[in-house]
Amino acid sequence: MKRSNAPIFWLLFGAGGMVSALIGPVLVFITGIAAPAGMLLPRELLSYANVLSFSQHWAGKCFLFVIIFLFLWHSAHRIFHTLHDIGLHAGLGAKLVCYGAATTGTLVAGCALLRLGW
């Protein structure tokens, strides 16, 4: 019997699922609702200078990378299984599209964050 390579994807799915379950809602609320609407948080939170300095700090940079990385892999894995669930057994094709998109997104996020400097 061939051993499954699923543990790699499953662990990323699980880690992303756990992080998004714990702090996903508050992140969406902060960056998408509270700060842009100036509700509970000032709009200046998202000013160029403020966001840039956050992204140049090692902790902020790592945080942003981990969130984008894990959220992408969590959703890619779940969407891959959903495609299977609705009868699209594209197999390798679906795998390439889902995990390929997550890989590309991770690389783009990594490069963009590195280029912002420290």
Partner: peptide, 9 residues
């Protein structure tokens, strides 16, 4: 979750 990750990206 994917949509939000893409917005952050």
């Amino acid at each position: 979750v994917a949509a939000y990750a893409l917005i952050l990206l």
